[in-house]
Design a protein around this nucleic acid. Structure first.
Lengths: 121, 121, 121, 121
DNA sequence: GTGGTCTAGACCACT
DNA sequence: GTGGTCTAGACCACG
């Protein structure tokens, strides 16, 4: 597993870490039970505070993507293929709805909006 | 013209006002030269601070959607149909690109993403 | 309203603040709409960090006892007499159940347990 | 004797073990001289570290509830009926006092508090 | 001037 | 050596 941070990014460090792990977990690259590196190790390697790393871990925890065992470590949660797929769709759904709502309120049709999305791909 | 605020919304008041006027202006509902109500009137009617209303007006001013005439008030700016269309597309482009980028990073295809947008319409 | 901290207490500062406000709100001493002092003011007066004060405010917020208006301040929430009574009972219920469960598992009767509580009053 | 652990409990493993043995000893279910299973056996059966089991045993030792015989194992200590009763009351007293203090500070009477305890039984 | 976000780290309980 | 709790404060968006 490889974690990294974009220097000078406007995206908060904790969110960058969350996003990377989110993708690796829902894609199945990280299998259930996989032990995440200790937060202090990650913090030291990335040159940031343990608190920042913990913020990312906390978000993953509250989303049920990892589990934590006090005094032992954090582990990737058990998620079936369907559950992982569900999470991926969920992550895209809200932004898609927001875009659709915005487009509608501006008077765009579904087709025009889809085209804009396709052209950005 | 009808301005309103969602109570307990996480969207700041000034942005809600900006968005409502933005849509009415670029869609052509508010014609060029239309006189906006005085900020004090809006503030009183909505029960918010004049500073908040002014923030929305300022944003519209710097975006060239309204113009201010000292001692007289604020008016909807002259915008050609093409200019208004341009603004609308501009407003939708960034969110569309963000959605596409997110979808791509999650491993979705353009078709799957378009479908999600269409279904949200 | 008067907030204070016990020096050298093992109870965390943020919880002491929470408890004081909880009692004043559910007892009705602080009426709905009452503006809490700014967190920075409280922090300075008590000689602690604004973060500590904010932790207390956050807990009150998530318990629905206060409401916050960004850029404006925090206010005591609207709660009917019945709601306030409900909160008080709720606050006592869990500890009471825990005590009963412990007593039961140790082989005490309800009467013996009640007597122990009465004698502690 | 049957030891078990609640999965995902917020109560630490060592405390769960301590509590179970505490109750069995002070209630007399485990008689004086009874040989506790070797910590390695317990650890293996419960799938936890020997350090965790030892923590529970240490707490029981320092509370005088068990005794250790070098090279032989741990045994339930000799305790008279009165001593065991004393321990039980002791274990209940602090929680009862805490409950009474909380109730008092919330404005409840002794009778109301007792009723709440009785209803939880 | 207000609260919210993000980053920060000492200390402690648990393993 | 692990994560959890508590306290900490700069910076920013908002009014």
């Amino acid at each position: 597993m490889r974690l990294s941070l974009l220097p000078n990014s406007s995206i908060p460090a904790y969110k960058q870490l969350y996003d990377q792990l989110f993708k690796e977990i829902v894609s199945g690259e990280l299998v259930a039970g996989y032990a995440l590196p200790p937060i202090r190790t990650v913090a030291k390697e990335l040159g940031i505070s343990v608190i920042t790393v913990r913020s990312a871990w906390d978000a993953l925890l509250s989303d049920g993507l990892i589990e934590t065992v006090a005094g032992s470590g954090c582990f990737v949660a058990e998620l079936s293929y369907d559950e992982r797929l569900e999470r991926k769709i969920e992550a895209l759904k809200k932004p898609a709805e927001d875009l659709a709502a915005l487009a509608k309120s501006l008077g765009f049709s579904a087709e025009e909006t889809e085209k804009l999305v396709r052209d950005s791909f």
